[in-house]
């Protein structure tokens, strides 16, 4: 079978989108993968999937993104998708304080169910609604510094920073992965002790075929 261009990638990273209901996770995903925004989209039930490839340092990174339902009831189902994820975009709504307050609970979810080395980025969405802002950028920044997370504010509606958010988290994951791959080339003693290493790097970085780091594929 002739491989389709879409199949051609150097790395496959599984990323999850999590956060409270109605913060705009699905629209961030559709903006990133299809450049679409829907003003009246239905709620996500369970989990939805989309994918897109980007270039980092001349390598093709394919992101397999799982968008999850925000309601607490669904966590038993959605947390199964955290397994094998190397990145998580934890989204809140800058106009709704409670969605920011709940970030801690989402972090706990990740600690309980995801890989310990998962890269987490906090995303304050709906930055276009300036006049309704209730979560200050400084507060989020301070929180992220304390927790060791990256942070960005986005507007899926205006397509502000959406590309950057995904680009940054995927680049960060890529750097960790390639660093670890490099380290393992140096010899067995260097690799496993490294604190930043993540488990998902079994695949050699240059193999031009499917190297799944995800349980799903």
């Amino acid at each position: 079978m002739v491989p389709k261009p879409d199949d051609d990638y150097d790395y496959l990273f599984k990323v999850v989108l999590i956060g409270d209901s109605g913060v705009g996770k699905s629209n961030l995903l559709s903006r990133f993968t299809r450049n679409e925004f829907s003003l009246e989209s239905k709620s996500t039930i369970g989990v939805e999937f989309a994918t897109r490839s980007i270039q980092v340092d001349g390598k093709t990174i394919k992101a397999q993104i799982w968008d999850t339902a925000g309601q607490e009831r669904y966590r038993a189902i959605t947390s199964a998708y955290y397994r094998g994820a190397v990145g998580a975009l934890l989204v809140y709504d800058i106009t709704k304080q409670t969605t920011f307050e709940n970030v801690e609970r989402w972090l706990k979810e990740l600690r309980d169910h995801a890989d310990a080395n998962i890269v987490i980025m906090l995303v304050g969405n709906k930055s276009d609604l300036r006049h309704l802002r209730s979560v200050q950028t400084e507060d989020s920044k301070a929180f992220c510094e304390r927790e060791g997370l990256s942070f960005i504010e986005t507007s899926a509606l205006e397509a502000t920073n959406v590309e950057q958010a995904f680009q940054r988290i995927l680049t960060e994951i890529y750097h960790i992965v390639s660093k670890k791959a490099l380290a393992s080339e140096d010899g067995p003693s260097a690799a496993p002790s490294s604190g930043t290493a993540i488990k998902v790097t079994e695949a050699a970085p240059d193999a031009k075929k499917k190297q799944s780091c995800c349980s799903g594929a």
């Binding site: 903006r31 003003l39 609604l129």
Partner: peptide
């Protein structure tokens, strides 16, 4: 507040 913002504004990509 979003709807009001749509008047006379352009948004990137597809806005459905």
């Amino acid at each position: 507040g979003v709807r009001g913002l749509f008047k006379g504004r352009g948004f990137p990509g597809t806005v459905k």
